[in-house]
Simulated scan of single mutants.
Amino acid sequence: MAKKDNVNNSITLPEQEFNFIKSDVHIPRMVPLQTLADESGISYKALWLMCKQNKIVHIKSGNKFLVNVDKFVEYLNTGEQESE
């Protein structure tokens, strides 16, 4: 349970709770399209089209697309899934 610190009225977490929260979090590696194009050998335009068609997991930050690298590798390994 979180405790209230009387000195500066902020809420602090006990070490045990903080370690539990920290160990469960996996932050994905998100890279811009140009970086992914350089690393994968797939053209920038092809990656951009995949984002526009929602084929790969991405977010848009301003006018930049940031792609989840782990999900992109998974997409390359499995290919497109056909839906009926």
Rank of each mutant, 00 (worst) to 15 (best):
E82Q: 12
A46E: 13
E80I: 03
K45L: 09
N9K: 11
K64C: 06
N54F: 02
K45S: 11
D24G: 11
N8H: 12
Q16W: 07
E80K: 10
L66H: 05
N63Y: 14
R29T: 10
F65V: 09
S43E: 07
I21W: 06
N68A: 02
S10R: 15
V31Q: 13
N9E: 10
K64S: 10
F65L: 08
E74F: 02
W48V: 05
A37H: 12
H26K: 15
I42F: 02
V73S: 05
D38H: 10
L49R: 15
S61R: 15
Y44R: 14
N54Y: 03
A2F: 06
A2V: 11
I59M: 06
E80W: 01
E17Q: 13
F72P: 00
E82P: 03
S61G: 03
I11L: 10
P28I: 00
E17K: 12
N68G: 01
D5W: 08
S23C: 02
P32E: 07
P28V: 01
P32C: 08
V73W: 04
P28E: 03
W48H: 14
K55H: 02
A2E: 12
I21V: 14
D5F: 06
Q53I: 01
V73L: 11
M50D: 11
I56M: 01
S23Y: 05
K71C: 08
N6F: 09
A2H: 06
C51L: 08
L13F: 13
Q34A: 09
